[in-house]
Amino acid sequence: MEHHSVIIIGAGPAGLSTALALCQSGAKDVVVLERETQAGGIPRHCGHKGFAPYKNFGLMTGPNLASLLREQTTGLDIRTSTTVLEFTLRGSLRVHSTQGITEISADKIVLAAGTRETSRAARLIGGNKLKGVMNTGELQQRVYLGGEHPFRRPVIVGSEWVSYSTLLTCRHLHAKPVMLLAEDGENAAPSYFSFGARLLGTKVVRGAKLIAIRGNSAVEAIEIERFGKQQTVECDAVVLTGKFRSEDALYSNGYLERNGYAPAVTDGFKTSKPNVYAVGNVLGHLETAGLCMAQGRELAKVLFP
C-alpha cells in the first residue's frame, strides 16, 4: 500500500498552509489530496475583496489569495481531482482519482476539509422545489467561475458576514436584492453592516422567519413570518447564506468522535483518533482564511516540532 508520512485532506487555506509550514520546517513526504480540479479552496470563488493572508498585509480578493497560496506551494505534492472516499477500518484512506480507487496510508492524517452552508433541505424550508434557490457557495461559483447572471432581484437570507459578501456579489452582478432577511443567528455580523446594506439600497428585515418559497418553475415569491404575521415578498431567487457547518462527509459515520456538528478535538487539533488531526473550518466555526492559515502554521509546529 502507498504510504506517506503526512497526508492532508483538502487544499484550502488551512490545508495548504499546514503543508507549506511543514515543508519549510524540513518535513519530507507530505501529500495534499484535493477533490476539486484546482487547489485554493473556497476563496477561489469569493470574487470580492476582504481577504488578508497575514497581519498588516492589506486586503485582497479571494481568487488572488488562492493563487498566492498556489504560488507559495508550487513544487509540493498536491494532487487535485483526488477524492478521499472514506477512512477504512484500519485507519488508511480509500482514495478516488481519475485512474480509479486505491488505498493510501500515512503516519499522520490532517483533515482540512472545510465547511459548507446549511442547505434549504436541512433548514426544512417549505414551498415548491424551484430553480433559483441556492447557497452562497453555489452563487459565487456560478458568478465568479461560470460568469453567469443567475437573477435580478433576489432575497438574501442571513445576517452573517457572508450575507453581506453576497450583497457585494449582487452589486458585481448589477442585481438589486429586494430584501436582506436577517434571521436572528449566533454569528450575526455587526449592525453597521446592515447600515451598509441600506446604503446599497437593500431593505433589511430583522426577526423574520422564511416559511416557504413559491413559484411555478422558478422562484416568484417567498413567504415570511414576522411578529406572528405572514407576508409575501416577490423576488426571483433566494440565496440562503451562512449557518456554516463542518464538512463532515469523512467522519459523520462515527469514525471520529464529535462535538456537536464538528469533530471533537483536544489541544486545538487532536481528534479522537491518535494519528488524525483537524484544522481550519472543518472544526465547525467559520473563520477567515487568514485565521485558517495561521491555524495551519500552528498545527505544523505540533506535527513537526
Partner: peptide, 27 residues
C-alpha cells in the same frame, strides 16, 4: 432539465444540495 439529470445520475442530491458542485454540474 436538471430534475431529469438528478433522476438519471443523483448529481446534487447529496448532503450539500449543490453548495460545492451545482455550478460545475449544470455547466
Amino acid at each position: 432539465d436538471i430534475g431529469g439529470l438528478k433522476r438519471r445520475t443523483r448529481a446534487t442530491m447529496g448532503r450539500c444540495q449543490g453548495f460545492y458542485c451545482a455550478a460545475y454540474v449544470t455547466s
